[in-house]
Amino acid sequence: MAALAQSSGTPLEIVPQATGHGAGAPVGKGAVLLDTSRLTDVSIDPELRVAVVGAGATWSAVNAAAEQHGLLGLAGSAPSVSVSGYTFGGGIGWLVRRDGLASGALRAVRYVDGSGRSRTAADDSTDEVDRAAIWAFRGAGGVGIAHTLEFDLVPVADLHAGALLWHADALPKLVAAWSSTIGTVGSSVSSSIAVLHVPPLPPFPEELHGRVAVHLAIADPDGPVAATPLLDAMRAAAEPVSDSWGPTDAAGLARIHLDPPTATPAIGDARWLDASTPVIAEALLSTAAADDAPIVMMEIRHVAGAPVRRTGAVVAPPGDFIYHAVAPLNLFPRERIEAGFARARSVWSIADAGSRPGSWVEGAASVPDALPADVRKRSAAIADAVDPDARIRRSRLLG
């Protein structure tokens, strides 16, 4: 509120940011960066299964507190991501097929509008603008400046998860096993199959250092049984070099994607794909499997069947699968990376579901095709109502 008051009467733009994970838009001289990363309070109500947290709280902090009560929030792959930007962009995590997108778990948001007024967005808010705002916070990037979130937690009775790694020369056999089995896993199982260029660092086994690997990340909050068909099929196709599947906790769940431990300059590409994806999986992943490929990680995430918990801009997966690729700018020129993305596009376009998971497109200033036209139009109108003078930078999903 103070930042808005001090910039009143000036052309300064207010740019909210928590952790900055995946940020890609420049912050110029005509803008004020409003850093919310120190808003880290976390409060857990185990009886109501609700968390109230600051917009700068990370998922690692939230789930470390929640798991003491047998609960978890619907966190994503990287534990250092803030709950706010992740949730407002939809929030696709390892519990998605049982519990849905994180946006659907969002109960309320306390935020500041363009005039500096403090408001609460919720379905039962007395003000029509605030009732509209919670709809936009659920997957359209949000509106105004959020400072506190309230969301549901879910019970996790028997959390199992793990990362399995194989040599890339087994890719055809592994993808064949994955393709023939992925439709048979239980509805609580979420997973991704990926091609990964392994750095010469722990926690990767030395046998794979500097080589290309096939990576399966898999999780089930309800125990080991439902994942057995997929695990058995892929283990039978080729012996894994590394296999960490087993009982785990929130910290272990956050490690299965094998994200780098420190921030890395990179750009990403992502797309929602339809149910035909297993047919093209080998051809798609093969575009990133060459030793000199600029894409260091390409995955296909399985999200089919995720339930819808509440109404909102994006509260259900627009497709059964997600294609996601990441390339480091410190190792390859952008032109070569874009050519790699184009090769992948020539394959995944056959299974295109029509939009992008916007928060997965790392390093982009805007992702205009993250939302259907009608959703983007409605969300933009809500942003105009909250901030009619456009003093607060809009979500990149509305770009």
Results as ranks from 00 to 15, higher is better:
I392K: 05
F332Q: 14
L397N: 03
G312P: 10
S286R: 15
V367D: 04
R310M: 11
A270W: 04
R376N: 10
S276T: 15
L273G: 12
I350E: 02
I267P: 06
A325R: 12
I337P: 00
A293R: 12
Y323P: 01
V279E: 15
G340P: 09
W360F: 15
R394H: 02
S366R: 11
A390E: 11
A351S: 09
P265G: 08
I280G: 07
P333M: 13
A283F: 02
S379Y: 11
G319S: 10
A364S: 14
P388H: 04
R376A: 15
A327H: 08
A290F: 02
A290L: 08
R378Q: 13
V367M: 03
V296M: 02
R356F: 03
G399E: 00
P372G: 07
W272M: 10
S276K: 08
S355N: 09
L285R: 07
F341M: 09
A381I: 02
I267W: 03
R378V: 07
I300T: 11
A390C: 07
P317E: 02
I267M: 07
G354V: 09
Y323F: 13
L331Q: 15
A373T: 13
P318I: 14
A351Y: 03
A381Q: 10
G319H: 08
R301V: 14
A370D: 04
R301W: 07
M298I: 08
A270S: 14
A281G: 12
R396C: 00
A339D: 13
V326Q: 10
V314Y: 02
I322T: 15
A316D: 04
P317Y: 01
M297E: 08
E338P: 00
A266Y: 00
D352S: 08
R310T: 15
A385I: 05
R301G: 13
A304Y: 05
D292A: 14
A381R: 12
D320R: 05
S379H: 09
R271S: 12
P368I: 10
T287Q: 12
D387T: 10
E338S: 06
R301I: 12
H302T: 04
A281Y: 08
G340W: 07
A339C: 02
S359N: 15
R309W: 04
S286Q: 15
P388R: 02
A373V: 08
A270T: 12
V296H: 03
R309L: 15
R310I: 09
A304P: 03
E335Y: 02
V303K: 09
A380Y: 01
L371H: 04
E282R: 13
I300R: 06
N330I: 06
L273Q: 14
R394F: 00
P317G: 05
A342H: 01
P317I: 04
V308S: 06
D384Y: 00
I350A: 05
S355W: 00
V326W: 03
G305D: 14
A293F: 03
A316S: 15
G399D: 01
G305I: 15
P372T: 13
L371D: 07
I382W: 00
A325I: 10
R396Q: 08
G354Q: 09
A288L: 07
I300S: 05
L329E: 06
L285A: 04
A373I: 05
T311S: 12
A351R: 03
D292C: 05
R309H: 12
S395G: 08
A290Q: 11
H302G: 03
V315K: 04
M297P: 00
R310E: 11
A351V: 05
A353N: 12
E338V: 11
V303R: 06
L273I: 14
G399F: 00
A383C: 01
